Lab assay of single mutants.
Amino acid sequence: GFPHNFQETTYLKPTFCDNCAGFLWGVIKQGYRCKDCGMNCHKQCKDLVVFECKK
């Protein structure tokens, strides 16, 4: 597997964290999205993600 390539992201529609399944709250920059596989997560979850990037 590969490490994720997370970038701070502004979501335009309701989005949930792929790590904890919690809602990504806020208006802008609600969470992080992996540029390579599209995984979404909270800032506090991005260092805890157990799934490797599937590129």
Results as ranks from 00 to 15, higher is better:
Gly26Asp: 03
Cys34Ala: 01
Gly38Ala: 14
Thr15Trp: 03
Cys17Gln: 01
Cys37Asn: 01
Met39Glu: 07
Cys37Met: 01
Val27Phe: 14
Asp47Ser: 14
Gln44Ser: 15
Pro3Arg: 13
Cys17Gly: 00
Phe16Thr: 05
Cys34Ile: 01
Phe16His: 08
Lys54Asn: 09
Gly26His: 04
Asn40Lys: 08
Glu8Lys: 14
Lys46Val: 06
Glu52Gly: 12
Arg33Ile: 15
Val27Lys: 04
Cys17Pro: 00
Pro3Gln: 15
Cys53Val: 10
Phe23Thr: 03
Gln30Asp: 03
Cys45Glu: 14
Gly31Pro: 00
Lys13Ile: 06
Val27Asn: 04
Glu8Tyr: 10
Phe51Arg: 13
Pro3Ile: 15
His4Val: 00
Glu8Met: 15
Trp25Val: 10
Asn40Phe: 04
Gly26Leu: 03
Val49Glu: 13
Asn5Ser: 11
Lys35Ala: 14
Glu52Ala: 11
Glu52Phe: 15
Asp36Gln: 07
Tyr32Thr: 14
Gln7Val: 07
Gln30Met: 03
Cys34Phe: 01
Asn19Ser: 14
Gly38Glu: 14
Leu12Asn: 01
Lys29Tyr: 13
Pro3Glu: 15
Lys54Ile: 06
Pro14Cys: 06
Cys41Tyr: 13
Asp18Met: 10
Lys43Phe: 06
Met39Phe: 08
Leu12Cys: 08
Phe23Met: 12
Cys53Ser: 11
Cys45Tyr: 02
Asn19Gln: 05
Asp18Glu: 10
Lys54His: 02
Lys13Asn: 05
Val50Thr: 10
Tyr11Ser: 14
Tyr32Trp: 11
Gln30Arg: 03
Phe23Asp: 04
Thr9Arg: 11
Glu52Pro: 11
Gly31Ser: 03
Tyr11Asn: 07
Lys43Thr: 12
Thr9Glu: 04
Gly26Pro: 03
His42Gln: 01
Leu48Ile: 04
Tyr11Glu: 06
Gly22Val: 03
Phe6Val: 11
Gln7Lys: 03
Cys41Met: 06
Gly31Val: 03
Gln44Gly: 15
Asn40Tyr: 05
Asn19His: 12
Tyr32Lys: 09
Val50Lys: 04
Glu52Met: 09
Asp47Gly: 12
Lys29Met: 11
Gln7His: 10
Leu24Phe: 13
Met39Asn: 08
Lys55Ser: 14
Leu48Arg: 09
Lys35Val: 09
Phe6Leu: 09
Asn19Tyr: 09
Gly31Thr: 00
Cys45Arg: 01
Phe23Lys: 05
Phe2Ile: 14
Lys54Pro: 02
Gly22Trp: 08
His4Thr: 00
Tyr32Leu: 10
Trp25Leu: 05
Gln44Ala: 13
Thr15Tyr: 03
Phe2Arg: 09
Phe6Asp: 01
Cys41Phe: 05
Cys53Ile: 05
Gly38Asp: 13
Asp18Trp: 15
Thr10Gln: 04
Leu24Gly: 03
Gln44His: 14
Thr9Ala: 05
Asp47Phe: 08
Val50Asn: 07
Cys53Lys: 06
Glu8Ile: 11
Lys29Pro: 03
Cys20Asn: 00
Val50Met: 14
Lys46Leu: 13
Phe23Glu: 05
Glu8His: 01
Ala21Ser: 14
His42Asn: 01
Gly22Ile: 08
Gly38Met: 10
Phe2Pro: 02
Tyr11Cys: 08
Asn5Tyr: 03
Val50Phe: 15
Lys46Thr: 11
Cys45Thr: 01
Gly22Ser: 11
Cys53Tyr: 07
Lys13Asp: 02
Lys29Leu: 09
Phe16Pro: 05
Cys34Thr: 01
Tyr11Gly: 03
Phe2Val: 06
His42Arg: 00
Arg33His: 14
Val49Asp: 13
Leu24Asp: 02
Asp47Gln: 14
Asp18Leu: 13
His42Ile: 00
Asp47Ala: 11
Ile28Asn: 06
Lys46Asp: 03
Asp18Asn: 12
Pro14Lys: 02
His4Glu: 02
Cys20Leu: 00
Asp18Phe: 11
Phe2Lys: 10
Gly26Gln: 03
Arg33Cys: 15
Gly22Ala: 10
Pro3Ala: 12
Thr10His: 04
Phe2Gly: 05
Leu24His: 03
Gln7Asn: 13
Phe6Gly: 02
Lys55Gly: 10
Cys53Met: 10
Pro14Gln: 00
Cys20Phe: 00
Leu24Ala: 04
Cys37Val: 00
Asp18Arg: 11
His4Phe: 01
Thr9His: 12
Asp18Gln: 13
Gly31His: 02
Val49Asn: 14
Phe23His: 02
Lys35Tyr: 14
Asp36Cys: 06
Asn5Cys: 07
Ile28Val: 11
Leu48Ala: 13
Lys43Ser: 13
His4Ala: 01
Phe51Tyr: 14
Cys34Gly: 00
Tyr32Arg: 04
His42Glu: 02
Lys29Gly: 09
Val27Ala: 10
Asp36Tyr: 05
Cys41Gly: 05
Lys13His: 13
Lys54Val: 06
Leu12Val: 04
Ile28Arg: 10
Phe2Asn: 15
Thr10Val: 00
Glu8Gly: 13
Asp47Asn: 05
Thr15Ala: 15
Val27Cys: 07
Phe51Glu: 12
Lys13Val: 10
Lys43Tyr: 07
Asp36Lys: 09
Lys54Ser: 09
Asp18Cys: 06
Cys34Arg: 00
Asp47Lys: 08
Phe16Val: 04
Lys29Glu: 04
Cys53Leu: 13
Glu52Gln: 08
Lys13Met: 14
Gln44Pro: 09
Lys29Ala: 09
Gly26Glu: 03
Phe23Ala: 04
Pro14Glu: 01
Pro14Phe: 04
Leu12Thr: 06
Cys20Arg: 01
Val50Asp: 07
Thr10Trp: 11
Gln44Val: 14
Val27Thr: 04
Val27Asp: 02
Asp47Val: 09
Asp47Glu: 12
Met39Ser: 09
Asp47Ile: 07
Cys41Glu: 04
Thr10Met: 02
Thr10Cys: 08
Lys43Gly: 11
Phe2Glu: 05
Lys55His: 02
His4Trp: 00
Leu12Glu: 07
Leu48Gln: 14
Asn5Thr: 12
Ile28Lys: 14
Tyr11Pro: 01
Glu52Ser: 07
Lys13Tyr: 13
Glu52Leu: 08
Lys43Ala: 12
Lys13Thr: 10
Phe23Ser: 04
Lys55Asn: 09
Trp25Gly: 04
Phe51Lys: 08
Ile28Ser: 09
Met39Thr: 09
Cys37Gln: 01
Val27Gln: 07
Cys34Val: 01
Cys20Glu: 00
Gly22Tyr: 05
Asn19Met: 15
Ile28Trp: 09
Gly38Pro: 10
Ala21Tyr: 15
Cys41Lys: 09
Gly26Tyr: 03
Asp18Val: 09
Asn19Arg: 12
Cys37Thr: 04
Gly26Met: 05
Asn40Ala: 10
Lys55Thr: 06
Tyr11Ala: 06
Gly31Gln: 00
Arg33Met: 14
Asp47Tyr: 10
Gln30Ile: 01
Asn40Ile: 10
His42Tyr: 01
Asp18Pro: 01
Trp25Gln: 09
His42Thr: 00
Cys41Gln: 03
Gln30Phe: 01
Cys34His: 01
Ala21Cys: 13
Cys41Thr: 12
Trp25His: 07
Gln30Gly: 03
Pro14Arg: 01
Asp47Leu: 09
Gln7Phe: 10
His42Ala: 01
Cys17Asn: 00
Gly22Glu: 08
Asn5Ile: 12
Thr9Trp: 09
Ile28His: 07
Tyr32Gln: 03
Val49His: 15
Asp36Met: 10
Cys37Asp: 01
Thr10Pro: 02
Thr15Asn: 05
Gly22Pro: 02
Phe23Asn: 02
Pro3Leu: 13
Cys17Tyr: 01
Asn5Gly: 11
Cys37Pro: 00
Gly31Phe: 07
Asp36Val: 05
Lys13Pro: 03
Val27Pro: 05
Gly26Lys: 03
Leu12Tyr: 08
His42Trp: 05
Tyr11His: 13
Gln7Met: 14
Trp25Met: 06
Glu52Arg: 09
Gly31Asp: 02
Tyr32Cys: 11
Asn5Arg: 08
Arg33Val: 10
Gly38Ser: 12
Ile28Tyr: 07
